[in-house]
């Protein structure tokens, strides 16, 4: 059964099984996308929950059955993720000065990447881990395009719509992301060679 038919069943007949099937189909992709953007299980869980709560409550009002359901869900997930990332950035900006009480400055309060990395480590092989690390170092805009393309095989027209840029800009971001990743892999290889 197609997504559209399942959505129709859920909306018109309150069919819970239809909604469960929709979730089963897409939950891993949505979750992976959010996780690839925020690199934190707790935050990912929160954003994932927020996303699907909005999906449940707003499906009757804002979802137009003409469009793809998953593209609509992804827009919600993407907006929630970007909101979180921007809030984090604001927090760092506002608190960048020296704090007399805690006797810490901006650099002391920076998150410990290693600690986060250890905490969030997934059971994956070394090359994938390296890839994830490089992806996390990409600028947010480039990372977004790579992930939307990878997890959803989203056409660039849709990526452009979702991120409010032109198709050429979206393509350009993808190109720079791939070039940056290549550069990161090359540098890592060079380092390994020189250490041997």
């Amino acid at each position: 059964m197609k997504d559209r038919e399942l959505v129709h069943l859920y909306r018109e007949d309150d069919d819970q099984l239809a909604f469960k099937e929709l979730m089963n189909r897409h939950q891993a992709k949505v979750y992976s996308y959010i996780f690839s953007m925020v690199h934190n299980r707790e935050v990912t869980n929160d954003i994932f929950q927020e996303t699907f709560t909005k999906v449940i409550t707003k499906m009757d009002d804002t979802y137009n059955e003409q469009g793809k359901w998953i593209a609509w869900v992804m827009r919600i997930a993407h907006n929630a993720t970007i909101d979180h990332i921007r809030k984090q950035k604001r927090f760092v900006d506002v608190n960048s000065s020296y704090d007399k009480e805690s006797k810490t400055d901006f650099y002391d309060r920076l998150p410990d990447d290693d600690a986060v990395g250890q905490q969030e480590k997934l059971e994956i092989d070394e090359s994938t881990s390296e890839l994830l690390e490089h992806i996390s170092n990409l600028p947010e805009e480039q990372r977004t395009v790579v992930m939307l393309r990878h997890y959803y095989e989203m056409p660039f027209k849709e990526i452009a719509d979702l991120t409010d840029v032109s198709i050429n800009t979206a393509l350009g971001r993808m190109r720079y992301a791939l070039i940056n990743l290549r550069k990161m892999f090359d540098e890592k290889r060079e380092k390994e060679k020189s250490s041997v």
Binding site: Q27, A28, K29, Y31, S32, F35, S36, T44, N45, F48, L122, I124, S127, T128, L131, L132, I135, V146, H150, Y151, R175, L178, I179, L181, R182, F185
Partner: peptide
């Protein structure tokens, strides 16, 4: 070169929610 990087991306894992 771009194709090689794109192939690497295929190994990105899918993470299931709890």
């Amino acid at each position: 070169s771009i194709r090689r990087i794109k192939r690497k991306l295929q190994s990105l894992p899918l993470v299931d929610p709890p």
